[in-house]
Design a protein around this nucleic acid. Structure first.
Lengths: 125, 125
DNA sequence: TCCCTATGGGATAAATTTCTCCCATATTGT
DNA sequence: ACAATATGGGAGAAATTTATCCCATAGGGA
């Protein structure tokens, strides 16, 4: 439980960008969708792909993706439990968009690395 | 000042998506870039377009966009001051990506609104 | 003289997100 | 008997983001 239901500051949802923000704004969501699409379905696999995030947050963000019907969750009745997430058809429609984002990052990798590691607002380049 | 320089938890920057996250992750950044591209250059105009954000955050996020060389800032020596932001050529390369995001949101507007307003993880639809 | 203008940023509080630690599950292997 | 397994989630602390309030600027108008 505890999606983003009881926020004291409610969001405004005017344009498409606002709406996307609601379902995609979350530090790891885009990467989760991406890796799930690549076939990394299990929580443990996803955690290996995104080691910077704690298991807890990943679980929570996966739950939000579930809420928003971007992924499905299958729990196999085994012990220890096995869980698999998959993209819904709706979630799949996001893949081209995410691919575009990732490609932009790849194209500008060197520059981005430089900017992130040496931010300088007051100097020319 | 005070970009994201002194974070206690440093980010990992492996793939393109990680890099994009660093420069685009911020509640209003994408919308700021979008509206600047649409010709809304002044801080006050941008605030009108994004009334949910406080003036303070917008300024801060604009500063980060400056740090990352996605926009430029021109201060006209007038009183009261006039300021204009514009996309750099680098920032312009992001516009097609942002457009793709926004279009996805527009295409699925109705569904997204429903999901956001009535999240139900445990019920079928 | 005082207020209005548009903008930036300091200080501090509030809200939100994330981290860390810990417990629970049921079966297989030591 | 007990550890190990993969997963989920509660609780409270820590980190980060955002909101609020307030001050400063310098010229024009009431």
């Amino acid at each position: 439980m505890k999606s983003k239901a009881h926020r004291k500051i409610p969001p405004n949802l005017q344009c498409g960008l606002d709406l996307v923000g609601e379902v995609l704004y979350g530090k790891w969501k885009i990467r989760l969708l991406w890796f799930i699409n690549q076939g990394h379905k299990r929580p443990s696999e996803l955690h290996k792909k995104i080691p910077d995030a704690s298991r807890r947050v990943l679980t929570m963000q996966l739950n939000e993706l579930l809420d928003h019907e971007l992924i499905t969750k299958t729990v196999f009745p085994e012990v220890p439990p096995r869980v698999e997430y998959e993209l819904t058809p709706f979630g799949q429609t996001l893949i081209p968009v995410i691919r575009a984002i990732g490609e932009w990052g790849d194209e500008h990798e060197a520059r981005l690395r430089g900017l992130i590691e040496h931010p300088n607002r007051y100097e020319d380049v």
